[in-house]
Design a protein around this nucleic acid. Structure first.
Lengths: 212, 212, 212, 212
DNA sequence: AATGAATGAGGCTTCATTCAT
DNA sequence: TATGAATGAAGCCTCATTCAT
């Protein structure tokens, strides 16, 4: 019985909770499992979170933060379009290797059966990147680098769709297997090769004509 | 009521079960809700299915069948590549309009926390289309219609990724909102326009140079 | 697993619940104890009652009904004032002997910490007898049988106070012991003698001058 | 804060505990609520009391002491019977106004489900006043002031019953409402009038014939 | 063979009690 | 010595599963 949970322990609760929620979903996750895995008592969770719902919320927040941070690590300033895309793809691969549970968590979020919550979460999570990607595409269109007939929003959408499926492939069992089925172990197992293929497909998709 | 369940009633159980599982997830779904909605007793469900797990399995099977059938309706024989892609996209939109629950169900499947089951399902669901798409792409490459440097498997993967995200957008609340955020209500609301944009992006992505 | 709880079993649940609530109070009572004592499962209680609160409500209702019925068995029509009072006292003794738990339950009710509920219950339980007793006293005053300076309401109040304390003495451990302390085992143990003393005190208290 | 609790703080714990127990009952009362209200930590309560039970016991003791003291303030030496009764009634009213929580606490005591404890408490609380009242009544009977046929113990019992119901009416929500129902707001709201009525009823009940 | 009420294990949550600081 | 965070047993309630009719 420590005087107070250390920061590490508090973080561990969230981490273990994220793993549990990510694996079993909101309903399937068990508070006692989380507590056991975090090495604390069940009761103490209620000192930090009102109830299961709020703990879940904290897990969502932490996951979103990580996702944002991972993306921002890809930088963007002063990069050419191909460089930018390659950076985003690579960064996603790195982040997925480090913390697949955050991405699994993200995938769980998308199964929410509460429309209100789903909308709100989509707004928080998707709006910023939607804007960022759209801006990049519009700029590239103005510069004549890519297909001008493509709707910027649609382009951003397709791009992000591919990114989402990439992190799913690197974090969720089903999608990992799916990646193997589609691409074969060899390509699927090589981050570098897959990243190259993906960057190529995306740039082609946007109608990018230049070298890269 | 000592009458055997009619075929219709049996089918209704699965349909209602799919709706329930699709909406609430495996854990969240209630057997009694399913029974009530199907107009049968809880007990009779256990005459046809060992337990909740098996009922869920049957729902998965039926959903897969529908998905397969929906895709096969897109035909393929004698179609050009652009025609084929357009047909697949359009058919997905139609199928999603008719039975979003099957696609929501599919999305639920991907959250399975049992690796064995996840792999097995991926095998069943993804292998056939993976092969079909890869074959089409290889053929198109041999005909010099599309980018020869693209790995056929990767191409099929990216293509199917976009298809999956499309039916998610048409069936799951979170993804619907996401579509709206990225594309705006106008484009998101027009199946035709979105389909055009998507076909264009895909063909570009594959490096298709011809007219369409 | 019977097809349905028999009426007896349903009644038994309430009876055992009354015993449990009467003994331990609302908070102290355990649903599982009630179920065990009634020989049913915990779950089935929730088929008949929304939650613990509602079960408690049903117990209150049943107790009130019994109290009412016990009082009404004392009759009243065509009885002289002393006869009426004696009948009420005796009937209380009989009822307490048969079902002390209802009276213990009643005592628990009075400890309710929810003012709203307390008021509501007092209204339901006390209003009818308050009116009845007051009417009897007024009538007796008009007939010149008892002290005219006594406020009818106050007279009814003091009378009922003594009645309440009587059933407390016959149903709650503390009050039983108290009765023994005040009156000694001999008087306390004789319903007849105690009843005579009490009738005498009440009639004197009301200022009744006649014979009885 | 490594300072020993002051006497005031210790007293405050008991006071706040009495309020909490009186309001919510033994089970419903929360140690942390008591600690918070007393401005001390939960832990320190366990330095002074073995457990909740013992704290409750201390609250009972203090309440009993207050009740005794309140009664003794009514004096008794050199008073005539009517004066004595009037003094007791009035003193009860005053005490209830000052500290209804002690009387509510007393009422809680009577719900104890431990027979042993109930008996013991009754012994402590009731024996002294039982004796005192009985002595007064016996003396009055010897002096021919009151009904000689009344059993002294029974007389004391009925008298104290009325006193208990009086303080319940002044301290417990249910009984307050009951008082209002029986006597109406006007009489119920006037301590003086109610006291007069009660003294009259008691003296009549005892068969007191003299003036007062 | 279908019914749906009964079962009871398991989950979330509370709170009396402990103990490191 | 006081603190108050941590503990974990116990309680309410749900729901997958069973089985008497």
């Amino acid at each position: 019985m420590l005087k107070k949970l250390t920061e590490d322990q508090q973080a561990l609760i969230i981490d273990k909770a994220i793993c549990e929620f990510a694996e079993k979903g909101y309903k399937g996750a068990g508070l006692s499992t989380i507590a056991r895995n975090a090495g604390v008592s069940v009761g103490v969770i209620y000192k930090y979170y009102e109830d299961k719902e709020e703990l879940f919320g904290a897990c969502i927040s932490k996951s979103i933060d990580y996702l944002d941070e991972a993306l921002s690590r890809a930088g963007g300033e002063g990069k050419s379009l191909p460089e930018m895309i390659r950076a985003l793809v690579n960064q996603t691969q790195v982040a997925c290797r480090e913390h697949p549970e955050y991405f699994r968590m993200y995938h769980q979020i998308t199964t929410s059966d509460d429309p209100q919550q789903a909308k709100q979460l989509a707004e928080i999570i998707e709006r910023p990147s939607a804007k960022a990607y759209k801006d990049v595409i519009r700029q590239a269109q103005r510069e004549g680098l890519i297909d001008g007939q493509l709707d910027a929003g649609a382009g951003a959408f397709f791009f992000d769709n591919l990114m989402m499926m990439l992190h799913n492939a690197y974090s969720c069992t089903y999608y990992t297997e799916r990646l193997n089925i589609y691409c074969g172990r060899k390509l699927a197992g090589s981050e570098k090769k897959l990243s190259e293929q993906m960057v190529r497909f995306i740039l082609n998709g946007l109608g990018y004509q230049g070298e890269y």
